[in-house]
Amino acid sequence: MSLAMNIVDIACKTAQQNGAHKIQSIEVEVGKLAGVLEDSLAFCFQAVRKNTPAENAKLQIITIHGKAHCISCDDSFDTDTFFTLCPECDGLAVEIIQGRDLKIKSINVD
């Protein structure tokens, strides 16, 4: 819920700074490893946008898939979970390099 509130806050402040009164849509990048459930975010968004310039705004979620890098064998691979062994060497020394994103990319305003 607080993430949805942040999204509406940031979008409304940006709109205000740009002299816009109405937000048509908000584009948000959500990584698969960001710890955020897209459906819940969309649900909360509907509740928190009321009585704001984003009241009728559409939430457009862009899913960012996860990527990991193996420190042991230097392999990079796609993953949407944290508990992944390296598919090349079965090693544990895997660092997530993409998919933690939780970012407002852009807004469309009137």
């Binding site: 993430l3 942040n6 940031i10 990319k105 852009s106 305003v109 009137d110």
Partner: peptide, 14 residues
């Protein structure tokens, strides 16, 4: 009538 504004802000920025 609408236009796009680039935001690029982390949702948890504050």
């Amino acid at each position: 009538h609408s236009h796009k504004i680039d935001v690029q802000t982390d949702v948890l920025a504050e």
